[in-house]
Design a protein around this nucleic acid. Structure first.
Lengths: 334, 334
DNA sequence: TTGTACGCGTTATCAA
DNA sequence: TTGATAACGCGTACAA
């Protein structure tokens, strides 16, 4: 009943209830045999004193925190927070709590966060960080904390992974485009610090074009909508058509909006494709043709895999999500 | 150098380096006097063994986790993840780590999460959960964990708050609208489980209308863009004009898009105002007139306040963010 | 400057 | 069914 209570310990409960430490512990963990009367007595005392077990001490004694470390570059992107949400839903369902480690798109920070994950004593970790390469990720595995890595192909004793397959689909889209008579020149919108996922898409884009011998462009974009929109307003004063491949919806929208505002028609003059589509692809006008992977589902899957990994019964250590193309109104349906 | 190392303890380091526990501890914490030679020896051993101190044990011994609990309904909304991002930026800067507690819009879950925050032994907490009322929030204060509450007016010994002021601005907007000859009927878009923030706005909306004696409507909306869009498509078959006040950008967009697709003109026939604007207000077409509070800044401020609170030198325990109106193209500039 | 010994709040193993 | 007591890994007075 006291306000401002200092932390009540199990020992104080034991004293107040006139029993020993051990008995209180048994009551808390509902294990071992305890008489109904003593149980009642202890439980009453617990309520009365407002006792809450210290997760810290429990963790130290059991060597189990119910704590999952999540390493992400930032919580500020829609697709990442979608994934985070998927993770957290399953985590809660299974009685885990999430500890967040953000790396702000820097490899050094990411590495130091891995260190921090070790000291934090998590039961498992989910890493989604484009800056880390496979070797970096293995470092965490050497400490034998069960880990699911998203977007890196790594499989090891205590490590599994969730992969994104954008490449094949992107290749098909490009080939299809030309095969069906698409005649705009394609431009890939490069974003500084876009990470390896973007890098791989860019490589696919370039390789495919080289292979079929078509001209293409790479244009640097800013990560901010406003600046990119401004850049495109300038761009469309000179160029009056094109097919643009953008990493994210907001970049695609910047391109699309600038084109529209420059008096160009989407998709007749300017076509736009977003690589990592979110629900906003459907909200933006014209609606955005985009490749989709349900990031919430990715998060859920990763968390389920991690739990299996923790229990040592993850059989398929690698899972692939294939991107799906949703054609909307920012491209011509040929 | 070993892979698959079990956890190396401070004791093993001490043995390997031929010193005592205490000396290793001193080296780790860079405090107390240690000879350069022994320090070097210990540090070398630490590297060699790959020793990482157990945050758990440290926390238990010092009674400090460097851990901040964050209670939010879900990570899935743009404005919430923006806030989360602001919190995490400052947290990292100050050497704290974030532990996430999501409540899925249920008061019971929120209450149980508060319990969990206690057992988790955080150094402080930030609560942003619309389901909790002031009394609920005080519960955490009775355990004397420093807490910043967002969107509840509570001030107590170890509790401060960050407030949102939407009401005054909304009232002014409404009055202004009629004063300048606005003649569409206003409709407030109610969302189930929208929380107290929405509730307060709705109350302001109603009260203002009652006061000036104007007719108004309340319409229930779904939380999903797609469903709401569908509903509005039906709605606009019958109603051919209106001024709509929506809670979030996505709901406003659903209204706006449906209107446009029904052949209505925005803002000539249909005007839309978003209460909690995000960067998407600028991306959607027509761009969305919206009330804005920079949620990233809210998160930063909350975290700074919390740190002061932890150090016991927070002077102003209450901070208010005033919403700003950004007029864009979804309303008529009278 | 370094080492000893105790405490942090639990769980878990034995006895009783 | 209960109660001592030793871990868990570390920090820290205090002594050496």
């Amino acid at each position: 009943m006291d306000n401002l209570k200092d932390r009540v310990t199990i020992y104080q409960v034991a004293q107040a209830a006139g029993v020993s430490l051990a008995t209180v512990s048994r009551v808390i963990n509902k294990q071992g045999n305890v008489t109904d009367t003593t149980r009642a007595k202890v439980e009453e005392t617990i309520k009365r004193l407002g006792y809450k077990p210290s997760g810290l001490a429990q963790a130290l004694a059991t060597n189990k925190t119910t704590n999952i470390g999540v390493i992400i570059p930032s919580a500020n992107y829609v697709y990442i927070s979608n994934m985070l949400n998927g993770i957290s839903v399953v985590a809660k369902e299974k009685g885990f709590v999430l500890t967040l480690f953000t790396t702000s798109h820097s490899r050094d920070e990411a590495l130091s966060m891995i260190e921090k994950v070790i000291t934090t004593h998590v039961d498992g970790a989910i890493i989604f960080d484009d800056e880390l390469d496979d070797e970096d990720v293995m470092k965490i595995s050497s400490y034998s904390v069960p880990t699911i890595v998203i977007n890196n192909r790594v499989v090891a004793d205590r490590v599994g992974c969730v992969l994104f397959a954008y490449g094949e689909l992107l290749k098909d889209i490009i080939k299809d485009y030309y095969a069906k008579g698409g005649d705009k020149e394609m431009t890939f919108l490069h974003v500084h610090d876009g990470g390896r996922l973007l890098g791989r898409c860019e490589k696919t884009f370039v390789d495919t074009h080289e292979k079929i011998g078509k001209a293409y462009h790479i244009v640097n974009c800013d990560d901010s909508y406003t600046r990119t929109y401004g850049d495109f307003c300038d761009y469309f004063k000179i160029h009056r058509s094109g097919y643009f491949v953008a990493y994210r919806d907001s970049i695609a929208a910047a391109c699309e909006n600038a084109a529209t505002d420059a008096g160009l028609k989407v998709p007749e003059d300017v076509e736009v494709l977003s690589l990592v589509g979110t629900k906003y692809a459907n909200i933006i006008r014209p609606t955005l043709t985009a490749m989709h992977i349900d990031m919430q589902e990715v998060g859920r899957r990763a968390m389920y895999m991690l739990i299996d990994l923790i229990h040592n019964d993850l059989i398929e250590k690698s899972y692939r999500f294939d991107a799906k193309l949703v054609e909307r109104n920012s491209t011509i349906n040929r």
